[in-house]
Structures are given as structure tokens and as C-alpha cells.
């Protein structure tokens, strides 16, 4: 049975279902969003009235701001490394913990622990404790007779990697989503393929992975958005500075310090507009490619 598109009854029902969101969006989200889009074309120090300046924020951003391109580079590097690693790791652990063995409850809590620590102030100190000149990592390296005097967080070559490690290590949310996705795969699919003599590896590629693609799509898009708008980790660990040498000065962090610490809300808003366009483009690309690899049971 093919459902007719846009039947009146269905359209009304559709709007009824999304009505709560629509109200929230139009009533609470839209004003700040539009305001931000407008402020991008102004000079606004927050304390006096915004002044319209046309495209000058954008021109300055692209041609006359050395820190801007460094922050773009740092963010792309961060996103393109951390997102795939985090996703693969999350899927791996979800597969590992997707069973009814004894201890699974306990293990899941164990693996979710880093994500719970989240953005606590204590993380800043803990990260120094692990990556400091005489921290945990160096003492492990020393045990293996390796060079062990690197100040990881203060070294321009490695500082960003400590942040990548921090987010990969907090893989709890994509893991949990994968886990929920695994739970949703009907057991009978596995049962019938077992009868057909398929082994676990084949089952993974024939059933698990295809059935999981909608969830994978979700995780991919969300992780990508989170990666591009990464803020908290760098804010807490580098005290909002993006040090050393701007190697951890992520886009969202830079935008925030421009806006709130240098009183350049207009410039910050302009940066946000560029970010919105870039992320929207990436998201659009992923969506466009999705029919090729995402398998929906319902279609």
C-alpha cells in the first residue's frame, strides 16, 4: 500500500504531532537565532547599541585575522580525527557490551563513567595530573624506558591530541545510542540467519550493520556537529585560552572569547554564521549520501 503524499488528514496530523516543537521553535528559538544572524552584520560591544557595518566582519575574518584561520584548522583537525575514532570505538564497545553475560550491567556503568565526569571543573586538574610533566602518562612511559619529560598539554605538537583523547574517552553517549539501536534489532532476524548457517561475522555485516545504519547516520551527524562546535573541553582544560600557540583554539571557543572577552559580539555572530553555513553544508552532504548506505526497515 503506497501512502498518498500530503493527504489533508495526514498533513493535519503531522502538524499536530510537531506542533509542540513548532511553538517552541517560533516562540523561543527563532528570535535569538535571527538576532544572531542580524548581529553578524553589525559592530556590537553588548554594552552599547549595535551599529550596522555591512560585510566588514566577514571581510576582516577572511583577510585580516591570523587567529581565525588557525582556529579553523584546529577545529577541522579535531573534528576529522576525533569523530571517526570516537564512533568506531563507541560501536566496538557497544558490540562488546551487547550481551546477557554476567557483569554486563556493571561493565556498562564502568564504560559510561568518563562521560559522566563530563565538564566538571575537576577535569582541568585531572587532565594536568595525567598529562603534566610529572603526570601519570609520563610515569607510565618511564616504566617502559621511553622519553618521559614532555609537558603534553603545553606542547604545541601534542596539546590537541590530549583534547582528542578526552572526547574519545567520553564516548558514552554514542555508545549508549548504538546499544539502544542494537536492542531494537529484532531477534528473529538473527534466529533465522543462524538457521541458515551464518556465523557471527557474517551476521554482523549482513544484519547488525545494515539494521544499525539509521542510528549510525544519527551518530555521525550529531558527532560531526558536536565536533565542529566543540567548546567545553578546550574551555576547561586550557582555561579558555586555546593555548599553546592557538593549537587548541577551537572555532566555538574563539567565537566565544571574541564575543564575551573582547566585547566583539558582532564579530562573534559573524563567525557563528559562517559556522552555521559550514556545518549545514556538511550535514546536507551526509544526508544526500545517506540513501546510498542507510537502510530503513520502514521504506
Amino acid at each position: 500500500m503506497k501512502i498518498k503524499k500530503h493527504s489533508t488528514r495526514e498533513s493535519i496530523d503531522g502538524y499536530l504531532f510537531i506542533l509542540p516543537w513548532l511553538i517552541g521553535f517560533l516562540g523561543l528559538n527563532l528570535i535569538p537565532m535571527v538576532a544572531t544572524l542580524i548581529l553578524g552584520f553589525t559592530e556590537y560591544d553588548m554594552l552599547s547599541k549595535p551599529e550596522f557595518v555591512g560585510l566588514s566582519n566577514f571581510i576582516r575574518m577572511f583577510t585580516d585575522d591570523v587567529r581565525y584561520w588557525k582556529s579553523v584548522k584546529a577545529t577541522l583537525y579535531f573534528a576529522f580525527v576525533s569523530v571517526p575514532v570516537r564512533l568506531v570505538f563507541a560501536l566496538f564497545v557497544a558490540m562488546m557490551l551487547h550481551n546477557n553475560r554476567r557483569g554486563t550491567y556493571f561493565y556498562r556503568a564502568l564504560y559510561y563513567a568518563p562521560s559522566v565526569v563530563g565538564s566538571s571543573v575537576a577535569v582541568a586538574v585531572m587532565w594536568r595530573e595525567i598529562f603534566g610533566p610529572d603526570g601519570l602518562l609520563n610515569s607510565i612511559l618511564a616504566n617502559f624506558g621511553l622519553p618521559s619529560d614532555t609537558a603534553w598539554l603545553g606542547d604545541p605538537r601534542f596539546a590537541i591530541w590530549t583534547l582528542i583523547l578526552l572526547v574519545v574517552w567520553q564516548f558514552g553517549s554514542p555508545m549508549l545510542i548504538f546499544l539502544a539501536g542494537l536492542k531494537q534489532i529484532p531477534i528473529d532476524l538473527y534466529e533465522s540467519s543462524s538457521i541458515d548457517g551464518a556465523g557471527p561475522v557474517r551476521q554482523f555485516f549482513r544484519i547488525t550493520l545494515p539494521m544499525l545504519t539509521p542510528i549510525f547516520l544519527f551518530n555521525l551527524i550529531m558527532q560531526m556537529i558536536t565536533g565542529f562546535t566543540a567548546f567545553t573541553q578546550a574551555f576547561i582544560v586550557t582555561n579558555g585560552q586555546g593555548t599553546p600557540l592557538d593549537t587548541t583554539n577551537f572555532y566555538a571557543l574563539y567565537l566565544y572569547t571574541r564575543a564575551f572577552e573582547s566585547f566583539q559580539m558582532g564579530y562573534g555572530s559573524a563567525m557563528a554564521i559562517v559556522l552555521l553555513i559550514a556545518v549545514a553544508l556538511f550535514t546536507g552532504l551526509i544526508f544526500k549520501s545517506s540513501p546510498m548506505w542507510v537502510h530503513y526497515e520502514s521504506e
Partner: peptide, 14 residues
């Protein structure tokens, strides 16, 4: 989805 792509910090004042 766009509501996720504009950092909240920048929308704070409006």
C-alpha cells in the same frame, strides 16, 4: 537541525 549548529553562547544575549 539548524538550532544545533548555532552555538548557544552566541545567542545568549538576545
Amino acid at each position: 537541525l539548524a538550532t544545533l549548529m548555532l552555538p548557544l553562547q552566541i545567542q545568549l544575549i538576545p
